[in-house]
Design a protein around this nucleic acid. Structure first.
Lengths: 238, 238
DNA sequence: TGTATCTAAGATGCATACAAGTTTGGAGGT
DNA sequence: ACCTCCAAACTTGTATGCATCTTAGATACA
C-alpha cells in the first residue's frame, strides 16, 4: 500500500481564488443556510432538516450535511442525532459572552502591539485612521457593517497571531447574527460609532495602549447597549 | 410544506452520555485519526485520504469525511479539494501563537474573576489547590497530562463564559499535538510544573490577580522553553 | 376521559456508485 | 537526453438507497 505519501510537494492554494466558477454544492448550501441564519429567516429554536434544505436547493443531502457540520463548528447550529439541526438560540448571556471574548482578543492585540513597540501601535493607528470605518460617508447598511468588521479585523490581524485572528473572525460571524436578529436602527448609531472608531485609532496612533483599550471597551459596551444587553464588561487590566 | 417546526419541545441531550453503546462510525473515525495525529503516527505534511482511513477502519468514506471536516475546523487538518487532507505542519510560529492565545484566555479568566470579587478568586484558588495537578503523585504520563488539562480548563471555566471556554478547549487539543510531537521527557519537568500550579493557585487564593497572571505567564513560558520555542510572551496588562 | 400501545412518517447514519479533477509516469517523438 | 502528451491511478464531490432511530398521532382499551 502506498499510503505514506509524506513530504510531498506543498499544495498550492488552500483557499479558493475567489472565482466562483461552478461553486461547489457544499459551499452553496453553506452560504444559503448561513444567510438564512443571519437575516433571520430561520429563527431561534427552529429545527432544520437536511432534506428540507436539499430539496430547496435542488441538491442531495450530502453537501447540505457538510454545510451543517461547518455551521455547527461555528456555533450557529447544534446537531441532534436523528432529530435535526437546532438553530442555536441567542440568549442575552451568550451575547454577553461573545462581547467579552471580543474585548479579550482585541485587547490582546493592543497589548501585543504595545509590547512590540510604540511605533507599531502608531503605525496601525495611522492606518486605521484612514479606514472607511473612521469616516462618515454615504454607505449602505451592509457596507457600513462590512467596514466595521474590517476595521476590527485589521486591528486584530496586526497582532500577527494567526490563531487569535482565526478565533476572532469566527466570533464576528456569530455576533453578526445577534445584531441582525436584534434589529436596531444602525443609522442612528452610525455617527457615534464612527466617532468611537476615530477615538480608538487616535489613541493607538498616539501610542497610548491603556487609553486605546479603554475606548475599545467603551465602544463595545455601546454596542451592547444598542442591542439591549447588559453592558457590563470586566476591566481586563489590573 | 410543514417546514416551520419552530419552538418545539427542547431536545434533551446534545452530548452523548458518554456510554459507548455502539459508538457511531463517524466518532470512531474522528478518534482514530485524532489519536494518530496526536501520537505522531501521521507526521507533519503527511497527506491523508478518506479512502485510506475508511479501509483501515472497515467503514465507508462517508463517516471518515465527516471526521476530516471536524478535524479541519479544529485546525488539525487542511483539506485540499480533490487532493487530500494535509496534516497541518506545526511551525514554531504557530506553537508560539497558540501559547499567546492560551495566555490571553486564561488571563481573561483571572481578570474576570477578580472583577467579580476577591472572594471568587479565592474560592477558585482554594479549589485548584486541591486539584491533582497541584500534588505530586504517582501518575502515568497520560494521567499527568489529563490533570494538567483539567486544571487549566477549570480555571477558564470558572470565568463563566461559555464562548471563551469553548475556544480554550479547542486550543488545548491543538497544543496537545505540539507537546506530543516535540517529545520532551515530561517526567523531568513534572516537579517544576506541579510547583507552578501550586504557585498559581496560591496567588488566586490570596486574591492577588496580578501575581496570578504573572505566575501563569511564567508557567506557560516554562512550557514553551521545554518544547523548544521562543519563550517570549507579551505582557498582557499595561 | 385518560392511558398504553402501535404504526406511519420523517429524520439522520452510513454504504455504495458514479462523475470529475489531479497527479504521475511512461511512450514516443525530437 | 529531453520534451510532449496521454492514460491510468489516484483523489474528492455528489447522488442515491437503505437501515435505524425518534416521535407524533391514531387506536384500542379501561
Amino acid at each position: 500500500m502506498s499510503n505514506t505519501t509524506s513530504s510531498e510537494t506543498i499544495p498550492a492554494s488552500p483557499t479558493s481564488t475567489g472565482d466562483h466558477e461552478r461553486e461547489p454544492a457544499a459551499d452553496r448550501a453553506y452560504r444559503h443556510v448561513k444567510t438564512g441564519l443571519l437575516d433571520g429567516s430561520y429563527p431561534d429554536g427552529h429545527l432544520l432538516s437536511e432534506g428540507e434544505i436539499a430539496q430547496t436547493l435542488r441538491m442531495s443531502r450530502t453537501p447540505v450535511r457538510e454545510a451543517f457540520l461547518r455551521l455547527q463548528s461555528e456555533g450557529f447550529l447544534r446537531l441532534y442525532p436523528k432529530r435535526g439541526a437546532l438553530v442555536v438560540p441567542i440568549t442575552p448571556a451568550e451575547a454577553h459572552s461573545l462581547m467579552e471574548a471580543r474585548l479579550t482578543l482585541e485587547s490582546f492585540a493592543i497589548d501585543k502591539l504595545a509590547a512590540l513597540g510604540r511605533q507599531r501601535l502608531a503605525a496601525i493607528g495611522r492606518e486605521l485612521l484612514e479606514h472607511p470605518a473612521c469616516h462618515p460617508g454615504e454607505l449602505s447598511d451592509a457596507e457600513t457593517h462590512e467596514a466595521d468588521r474590517a476595521f476590527h479585523a485589521r486591528l486584530v490581524a496586526a497582532a500577527d497571531n494567526p490563531v487569535v485572528t482565526d478565533l476572532y473572525s469566527a466570533l464576528r460571524d456569530r455576533q453578526l447574527r445577534i445584531t441582525a436578529t436584534a434589529r436596531t436602527h444602525e443609522s442612528s448609531r452610525r455617527a457615534a460609532v464612527t466617532e468611537q472608531h476615530n477615538g480608538l485609532a487616535t489613541a493607538l496612533r498616539d501610542g497610548d495602549a491603556a487609553l486605546a483599550k479603554h475606548r475599545l471597551r467603551e465602544h463595545l459596551a455601546h454596542t451592547m447597549r444598542a442591542i439591549g444587553i447588559s453592558e457590563h464588561l470586566p476591566h481586563l487590566d489590573t
